[in-house]
Amino acid sequence: MAYSRIKKAARDKLTSLEVKIGPLRLSTPVVMASGTFGYGLEMKNLINYRPIGAIVTKTISRYSWPGNPQPRLWETPSGLINSIGLQNVGLDVFLRQKLPRLRRLGPKIIVSIAGFTSEEVCCLARELLAHRVEALEMNISCPNLKSKNKVVATSPRLTYNLVSQVRKAFPGRCLLVKLSPNVTDTPSVAKAAEDAGADGLTLINTVKALAVDLHNQQVISGGLSGPAIKPVGLRTVYEVYRKVNLPLIGLGGITCGKDALEYISVGASAVGIGSGFFSNPLLPQEVVNALLGQLKKTGLPSITYLIGRLNEKKRPS
């Protein structure tokens, strides 16, 4: 197993921190998670983009969405509940105003997409393909959409149907699917996405949560992120890695380089940084430093050798 992995890394000529997510080659395994890095442009004056392998944009819909009313945020002792509701500028403004500037930044661009119908999602995929977008992330797991429709990622069947349709609309390029921890069995949904032709999976979206504000006599429901959910994310990556053969982007509660190494060791090919960036904008650089440090310490030539090291049991190569 480990040997086949080394052979694969050698075949792909991946050096040092380079990783591959399907057809997408990233210079580092650090991915800025959707919804926590705006459209990717806002941080130009604050941070260096070089440690970042890819930026996942804020989720884009066909037409702009206003998102949810306030309150949208609630901090918990080690996390953050948010209920933004996928507020976004819509496809046209994104293509006109955001995408051209995004492409000049350096990191690979993964466009996160969502819609209320499969036609809407497929239309997004076709339009983005026409604009030569290299990678899509299907957000089928947002817990904050107030819709009568079921969250797609709660059902293997719905996931299979939607992913196979989008696959047809977006052929030959990297198609990622972001999955939910709010199900009994994420691996079965992951398998459905794999069978439908996804190139990789992003694990996990936020965990459904609720805060009670006794002072103002109201409740705030939303999705929990931050250190509180790291064990949930690790467990999900660990289980999905054993069930499917796709590269995984692991995220949930990464706030230091060690967290990133943990995700990689249980099977993540890349790691997502989400709300951890809010408290520490230097986190991408810190993760890269930690990964380089680990390579130096172990004498390994590529980070890919560390992927799934603590989860090597059953996976067929």
Binding site: T36, G38, Q70, W74, E75, N82, P281
Partner: peptide
């Protein structure tokens, strides 16, 4: 004053509606 998560314009957690002309913008 409002709750903020990032303070940087990234998360859209502190968004409020404003009148602008005859429309409402966020």
């Amino acid at each position: 004053e409002i709750r903020m998560a990032c303070g940087l314009g990234l998360c859209l957690g502190c968004v409020i509606p404003l009148h602008q002309g005859s429309s409402i913008i966020l």
